[in-house]
């Protein structure tokens, strides 16, 4: 197998691939067959090469071959998506939006009622807001345990996902669902399936911004 020859073949095909849209299906199938045949020959060549540097060169050709193949696959995927576009079901965007608005707004109103109550009791706003969050977390936890919150979620969509109740629901539902796998690997590990990423990226964002502010101070 001649390295330069192979390289030229790949370069030539690179040019042909630029005009992919003008090629007919038979030519594309032919190209896929050639790429497959070439790939196995290149893999054999790479495997039998004893010289380390030359092995790396062959490996690069192999990767180029794979890139060309994935280009063809991507092209086929786009064609297919075009074909199936008309069969995609309509998402009831307006209804979903209204329900998300109502449920999300409703949960926030509940929170506001709790805040207002504690302010009347003479608690400062910030602490009252904390109490409101806790109230909603506890309520959601109960509703999740009773198997009700998933129905609210099915109805409210993002309206029940975005408020802190969505966070509580994902924590409780994961813990509940995996209790049968035990206390440690079940509840203990799975409780953080969603809470973990939320806490991690929340902390990451606040620390990074905090550091920037600290340097600027």
């Amino acid at each position: 197998m001649n390295f330069i020859n192979q390289k030229n073949k790949l370069l030539e095909r690179e040019k042909a691939l630029a005009n992919l849209k003008t090629m007919d299906q038979a030519a594309i199938n032919q190209m896929i067959a050639t790429l497959k045949k070439e790939h196995q020959a290149l893999a054999y060549q790479e495997a039998s090469e004893k010289n380390n540097d030359r092995q790396k060169n062959w490996h690069q050709l192999l990767k180029q071959n794979e890139n060309q193949m994935s280009l063809l696959n991507q092209y086929a995927a786009v064609q297919y998506q075009r074909l199936v576009k008309s069969t995609a079901p309509k998402v009831p965007v307006l209804a979903n939006t209204l329900r998300a608005f109502a449920v999300g707004g409703g949960i926030c109103v509940l929170g506001q009622l709790v805040i207002n109550y504690w302010i009347l009791q003479g608690i400062e706003v910030k602490t009252a807001a904390g109490f409101a969050s806790v109230t909603i977390v506890v309520l959601t936890g109960l509703l999740t345990g009773l198997g009700i919150y998933d129905e609210i979620g099915r109805f409210g969509g993002a309206g029940s996902m975005v408020p802190i109740s969505g966070f509580a629901n994902s924590v409780v539902s994961a813990a509940l669902e995996f209790k049968r796998e035990g206390m440690v690997y079940g509840i203990g590990a799975k409780i953080f399936t969603v809470a973990g990423p939320v806490i991690l990226y929340g902390i990451l964002a606040s620390v990074v911004i905090g550091l920037i502010k600290f340097i600027m101070m």
Binding site: V93, N96, T97, A100, F101, A102, V103, G104, G105, G106, I107, C108, V109, G111, Q112, G157, A158, G159, M161, V162, P163
Partner: peptide, 14 residues
């Protein structure tokens, strides 16, 4: 609270 909370949720829904 209703309007702003609802709107924040609608963004995610969209």
């Amino acid at each position: 609270a209703f309007l702003v909370g609802g709107l924040i949720c609608v963004i995610a829904q969209l």
